[in-house]
Amino acid sequence: MRLFLERGFEATTLDDIAAAADVSRRSLFHYFGSKEEIVFSTKADFPALVAEAINRRPVEEPLLDMVENAFVELAQTHLSEASRDLARLIQDTPALSAGDQAKYEKFERVLAKALADRKERPQDDIECRVTAAAAIGILKLSTQAWLAAPETGPDTFGRAAFAALREVAGQAPDVRE
């Protein structure tokens, strides 16, 4: 990661990475198939961390509160300057930002399952799936806000976004014939 941050993603070669790690290129390929995999391996445990945070929430807590509080807990305990640098690298590198979208889709499924498990609901529960989809959208927006204003954490924007979602959801539908 140091090389990517110092030199840029495109300018860093697999040979550079192997040399810095003091392993052969072949050994590097034993663990990673590409430079993208190296970057995303640093975020590989995040879905499990969220699922664990969901499992620590009170089962009677409403779904939105459960996700919001789990996200805030993780933001307060796991975010650092290094994680912000990683988020910026991913955002600023087209090859990485495209791959990141696929990771968010997988993460959404993991989150929906964690919510359904915690609430003892079926895996395809629509409320859990909708909550997970909305929460992942808020997570993406919160990360973008954090990168734009690093003096505030993503939890600040996240809280505001969850409040906005609750307000919008509380509006009566406009039924037109």
Rank of each mutant, 00 (worst) to 15 (best):
E60Q: 13
P122L: 04
S24Y: 14
E81A: 13
A135F: 06
M66L: 12
D22I: 01
I54Q: 00
R84K: 15
A172G: 11
E68W: 07
E167T: 11
A161G: 02
E81S: 11
T156L: 12
E151Q: 15
L139I: 12
I17Q: 03
D22G: 09
A21M: 13
P94G: 14
L3F: 10
N69C: 07
D124M: 04
V39L: 02
L111I: 08
A19C: 04
D117P: 00
R84Q: 13
A19Y: 01
A48V: 08
F4L: 07
G99T: 06
L74Q: 02
L96V: 10
D174C: 09
G170A: 08
S41E: 06
A53D: 02
K140Q: 15
E108F: 03
L89Y: 14
A161N: 01
T156P: 01
A172L: 14
A98G: 06
A164T: 11
I138A: 03
K43V: 07
A114S: 07
H78Y: 10
Y104W: 14
Y104I: 07
L79I: 04
R57S: 12
G33L: 09
E151G: 12
S24K: 09
F32I: 06
P173E: 15
L115A: 09
L165T: 02
R56G: 10
R166F: 04
I54L: 01
A145R: 02
A51N: 02
V50G: 00
A135S: 15
L96A: 11
T156W: 08
T131Q: 05
V130H: 05
E108Y: 02
N55K: 08
R109H: 12
P122F: 02
D45A: 13
E105H: 08
L147G: 08
V23I: 15
T143Q: 05
D22M: 08
A20K: 11
